[in-house]
Design a protein around this nucleic acid. Sequence first.
DNA 1: TGCGCCCATGATAGTGGTTTTCATCTAGGG
DNA 2: CCCTAGATGAAAACCACTATCATGGGCGCA
Lengths: 131, 131
Amino acid sequence: MTAPRALRATKQRAAVSDLLDRLADFRSAQEIHEELRRQGEGIGLTTVYRTLQTLADGGEVDVLRSAGGEAVYRRCESSAHHHHVVCRRCGAAEEIDAPMVESWAQEVAEKHGFSEISHTVEIFGVCRACT
Amino acid sequence: MTAPRALRATKQRAAVSDLLDRLADFRSAQEIHEELRRQGEGIGLTTVYRTLQTLADGGEVDVLRSAGGEAVYRRCESSAHHHHVVCRRCGAAEEIDAPMVESWAQEVAEKHGFSEISHTVEIFGVCRACT
DNA sequence: TGCGCCCATGATAGTGGTTTTCATCTAGGG
DNA sequence: CCCTAGATGAAAACCACTATCATGGGCGCA
Ligand SMILES: [Mn+2]
Ligand SMILES: [Mn+2]
Ligand SMILES: [Zn+2]
Ligand SMILES: [Zn+2]
């Protein structure tokens, strides 16, 4: 029996979580940190990174690598497995569910003798607002 | 009229290219550099990075981001657009072609009003040899 | 074969995102 | 309140990768 692992309620964690609720786009840790400082929140960059990591580990936020290679985070509507169409300019995203692609990935991998299968499927483009 | 842009034949470039011909797996620039040094090749890490970049720009090698986020390179059989099933342990890869996924990505993005569409689709797992 | 131009090389330093360290702070159970 | 394990954050380390720039060496030409 593993103990419940408290995880304390701090104003820093609340600030990050609240901001994620307000944002619709994928944002980097540094952007989130800047935005919080702009709002007058006292929070360190380290804590932002740590909090996002924790939220990601708990499946509360989605993480993906932007085209530039940096990690960007977003609180999605769906808590189930899904993918995204992401704007390369502003980070705006649409959640997409594609059972057909899921089964395709699984089948292809098994056919080649692979196990412990996972996959990355992301579509990038420029959203209507950014055009 | 742009000049043909020579691109000189050096032993360093030959060494990288030859090694890529011999390798079946996706490898990082650092791994390729180490392997070349092990073989007694006199080559700098900078040159390995530059050469791989040049080969990638010319479409001669495929690049993708490993699970750890670093760029890994491989000379593929097919020169046409394709994706991979990659072993997370050893980098072994199978090339896969999935027209159905290509059109699906295009349609989904258009449906949401995105333009200048691109996508990343990679399947990771553990290959038979690594199990 | 010998110049000489100019691209190629590579040691070194720099960049930028992310993680580690560790002294200090604080949430929250008793 | 008190105490303490967990949380914070400034500073430094880390790490993959890129930029610099002095030196080296393809290769076109005589
Ligand atoms: Mn999926
Ligand atoms: Mn494709
Ligand atoms: Zn946009
Ligand atoms: Zn393997």
